[in-house]
Amino acid sequence: MRKRNWIAGVIITAVIFTSSMAFAGNIAINGSTTVLPIAQKVAEAFMKEHPDTAISISGGGSGNGIKSLIDKTTDIANSSRAIKKEESEQAKAKGSNPVEFIVAFDCIVPIVHTSNPLKNITLDQLKAMYQGEIRNWKEIGGADKPIVVISRDTSSGTYEVWEEKVMKKERVFPRALLQASNGAIVQAVSKNPNAIGYIGLGYMDNSVKMLSVNGITGSKETTLNKSFPVSRPLYMYTPAQPGGDVKKFLDYMISKKGQKLVEEEGFIPLN
């Protein structure tokens, strides 16, 4: 799903690039690939309502986005992490004063087969599983069955959250299976009683069972009050207090309409 949007986004961006001469307003957005699908979806809707504004979006990663914010080559930088102190100082040295906007939340939940008796898991157990140290369900109080660990491709935003919040930057062991989308993980886990995987909360359905982490169930509420451990806010940064088209776009982003699109993309909206 995200992938298809990505392709659509590239095409749209290309079209916009070639025809941008005719438009009045122009907004350049760069940065995180996690925020990319949200930015694209909202930008499409925004441009439909404001045909005189052209938005071009590229996703080179959070670091890249903030770098172009510092260099003033972008109007908005998408980021899946808060700006670092050094980065903000660099920006100030170059005469801009980055302003932070939280546009959505990411919440990643571990899932298992519906027949699995387990209800809760700790962060340490998850980490040990994904490092290949725990290999049987009985080690954490389940049946005597091997654990089949399913992970995402390493360049996805979902993997990024997992790596940061669960793995604490350690590597997932090579034996972990790989699936290329949230949907594929749901599919694979629902067909395998031994499996564990992780997905964005928006992709959760009845075919699989969600585990709570450290006793906290992943939900909109626990994400927004920051008690669920595998969640994070997603940001957009502007080089100064935004005005004009950029302000209009950011307002649209956090408006009801914009947040509805955020939810459709499988992220947690702000309200």
Binding site: K3, W6, I7, S58, G59, G60, T154, S156, G157
Partner: peptide
């Protein structure tokens, strides 16, 4: 196929 879509353009990956 799994990684190309989100690998940073002209990065090492």
């Amino acid at each position: 196929a799994a990684e190309m879509a989100e690998a940073p353009f002209r990065g090492d990956h």
